[in-house]
Design a protein around this nucleic acid. Structure first.
Lengths: 345, 345
DNA sequence: CTGAAAGCGCTTACAG
DNA sequence: CTGAAAGCGCTTACAG
């Protein structure tokens, strides 16, 4: 007789509970899952005993039987980018609330790594995927439902912040303060997000206002900030508002202006995007516009789970949502106080 | 006859490959896992066919049989805290390299949530856990091996950055520059990490140098930075060096000094901790000290997997490591240039 | 209301 | 070198 001995979990299983109580595993299963096929009394007794024994259901067994792993995958281009942690947190929160686990994968900005990461997650049996694609990547249907979170301009997007509207809100704010010349500062002319934001700013300018756009190079990590952006000069040219397309560049602009003796906000305004963690902390604190990560995550997860529920988890479809652009919220702080051109040297 | 129909995966399984090739599933399994019990030729043929069919092994089936899920859990107190994304990235990288998936859980700074998160991960069948504990939490043995990453002062720690040594490096650097009065700036006198860092700074002072410590209150997120730290006054009192216990506070100090007309680094030096993303970008860029997240993650993961391998994944032990304190690396940038007291008003 | 049985996909000890 | 069989823990359709 050929016998085999797969490893046993040390914890109790349904069978242990069943024999110890003199009932069948089916009944224990039904009692614990609360499907109501078991008498009130017996169910109570079983639950009690299970708790006593410290029973933990085996996800592996359940997954094998039901075909549902209870896990989704989250693919990010770079967790270390300060934009993504908040999103990851919101996704994890929304997924947990729906009873799902979250497997993460960092594609490290590389397209090949991204593909590989997606495959690894699928091998691990995720029921669906939330992907924040690497810039300019088009996610072709994977082997499971996929919710894409990207800028609104990308086709196949499930949900995104409304970057255009965010830019508009910034411009509107600057207009109200009486600014006339706005310098838009970005670092990546090829980025959809930055272009949407810049376009939004321009669309919010009013008659009599003008803007120019400065694309600065991203500094190498260890490169230091030796090279000046020449913003003090821009102030002398008549620019009173600096609308950076991300808080990081706003911070760079702000510290450079301060170093060069331009007082913010009395002599010039600086605004950012994203409301990163330090935005309220710096002096003066930064006026910015924030994505509603909570809502974005909520929409992505609920659309994804909806699709999984209706079409199964093995069909490679791009999830859609009714609301695919979530408004950004203007956060007014001190750095964009009233412009006062008289104080400009 | 009672028949049942568990859902079938749409993809091919071992059995499909086996029948399609006229061999047994055992042989297919052996061929694909490369255990060498199959003839070279046949193995090749099987692998080819499997690839053609796009075979993806079922983790659920494998996990159920072997008792190994191939997944570990990562519990963080707050992913949105700028300190953790880099660590999460490094952990994910190290785990992937070892063939493991990473389930994340954010305890949102709450002890109850942390416990709950740990339980959820265990229910999901993780083989081990990497926990960055919420401040002052003692991780009592869970139901699986646990690697704790925390400050070195905590017992039961697997690996940590050597915060004391980092502080020492900062003080040493300031001493070399000729500073005599150092103001240490922290925001949490109850934090082990901050105390280690502050202690390190003090331990690195040389004869003739002195320090004081300023504990500032953490600002409410939306509170703005209305309240000044009064650092300009400190400069007048003779402090020339400001050693913040995190980059966030260094940034606050730097922007306040600049606003108040104190030029950094010519009139005062500012240093930080952690080398957050914006540290090289600000003007002047920030001298700081960085944790070696890569090494920390490497040690945590390899110790954890070692423990899993030798003691199994169902015993709740705290993992230990030989090297439990990883040195921090000083990164000198412009904000800590030479002190020049003559220019102080 | 309760139980016996099948089977999800895999790996492994054993027989041939 | 290859195959038949058992069994990991679970859920579900069916019989009683």
């Amino acid at each position: 007789m050929s016998e085999t001995m797969p490893p046993t979990r040390p914890g109790p299983n349904l069978s242990r509970i069943a024999t110890s109580l003199g009932v069948s595993v089916a009944t224990v299963s039904n009692a614990l899952s609360g499907k109501g096929r078991v008498s009130e009394q017996l169910a109570e007794r079983i639950k009690e005993h299970a708790a006593e024994l410290g029973y933990v259901p085996s996800q592996a067994g359940r997954a094998l039987r039901t075909g549902r792993s209870g896990v989704i995958g989250l693919v990010l281009p770079d967790i270390a980018n300060p934009l993504f942690p908040k999103l990851a947190q919101a996704i994890e929160f929304a997924a947990s609330a729906a009873g799902y686990g979250v497997l993460i994968a960092d594609s490290r900005g590389d397209v090949a790594t991204q593909t590989e990461a997606i495959n690894r997650l699928i091998e691990r049996g995720v029921e669906g995927l939330v992907i924040v694609p690497r810039r300019a990547t088009r996610i072709s249907a994977a082997a499971c439902p996929v919710a894409v979170i990207d800028t609104g301009s990308t086709p196949g997007n499930t949900v995104a912040a409304d970057h255009m509207q965010g830019g508009w809100a910034i411009a509107n704010h600057l207009a109200e303060l009486g600014h006339r010349r706005v310098l838009i500062i970005g670092n990546n002319p090829g980025s959809n997000v930055q272009n949407d934001r810049a376009g939004g700013v321009r669309s919010g300018l009013r008659p009599g206002m003008s803007s120019a756009t400065l694309w600065i190079e991203t500094l190498e990590r260890q490169g230091g900030s030796g090279c000046s952006l020449g913003l003090a000069e821009k102030v002398r040219e008549g620019y009173t508002a600096f609308a950076a397309l991300s808080d990081l560049q706003a911070l760079r602009a702000l510290t450079e202006l301060q170093r060069d003796g331009i007082d913010v906000p009395s002599m010039a305004s600086v605004t950012g995007f994203d409301d990163l963690i330090w935005s309220p902390v710096i002096t003066p604190s930064l006026t910015t516009v924030a994505m509603d990560m909570h809502t974005i995550a909520e929409i992505a997860i609920s659309s994804l789970l909806q699709t999984i529920k209706t079409r199964g988890s093995r069909e490679g479809v791009l999830v859609t949502s009714e609301t695919d652009r979530v408004p950004m919220q203007l956060i007014v702080r001190q750095s964009s106080g009233p412009a006062d051109p008289t104080r400009i040297s």
